[in-house]
Amino acid sequence: MEHASKRDTMAPSGTIPGNGGVNAPSAARVDWVDYAKGICIVMVVMMHSVLGVELAAGETGFMHVAVAFAKPFRMPDFFLISGLFLSLVIDRDWRTYLDRKVVHFAYFYVVWVTIQFGFKAPAFAAETSWREVGLLYLESFIEPFGTLWFIYLLPVFFVVTKLTRRVPPLAIWLIAAALETARIATGWTAIDEFCARFVYFYSGYLFAPYVFALSDRARSHPGPALAALATWALINAGLVAYGASEWKVVSLVLGFAGACAIITMGTLLARAQWLNFFRFCGEHSIVIYLAFFLPMAATRTLLLRTGVIPDIGTVSLIVTIAGVLGSLAIWQAALRLGADFLFERPDAFWIAPKKAGVRLQAAE
Rank of each mutant, 00 (worst) to 15 (best):
Q361I: 12
R183M: 08
T267I: 06
A230G: 10
M296L: 15
L226F: 09
Y35M: 02
R336A: 12
L302T: 14
L268S: 10
Y200G: 04
F292S: 11
V42A: 00
A28R: 14
V156E: 02
G357C: 06
L153H: 03
A261L: 05
P353N: 06
I286P: 03
Y289D: 00
A272F: 15
I309D: 12
A68F: 03
I321S: 05
Q273C: 09
L86T: 03
M75W: 07
I309A: 06
F256A: 04
T231C: 13
R165Q: 13
V103Q: 05
V50G: 00
L290Y: 04
P25F: 11
R95G: 09
R74T: 02
E127M: 06
L88N: 13
S245W: 09
G187R: 05
F194W: 09
A11S: 12
L55I: 11
D34P: 06
Y210E: 11
D99W: 01
A56E: 12
A27Q: 14
A356S: 13
F158W: 04
F278H: 02
E59F: 04
A334G: 02
E127I: 07
W94G: 08
R345M: 03
A298R: 03
R300T: 11
G61K: 00
V160F: 04
A11H: 02
R183K: 15
L153N: 02
P168V: 02
G243Q: 12
W331G: 00
A126T: 14
R92W: 14
R279P: 00
I312C: 06
A257S: 14
Q273T: 12
G61N: 04
A171I: 14
C195P: 01
G118M: 10
V30G: 01
G243L: 12
V65H: 10
F157W: 09
Y210A: 11
R166I: 09
V324H: 00
V249M: 12
A259T: 15
L163E: 03
W149P: 01
A196W: 10
E364Y: 14
D340I: 05
K6T: 15
P155S: 10
P295V: 05
T320V: 02
A125P: 07
A213H: 10
V199N: 06
F150P: 00
R219A: 13
T147Q: 15
Y35E: 01
E59I: 05
F79E: 09
S251I: 06
T114K: 07
T320R: 03
A297I: 12
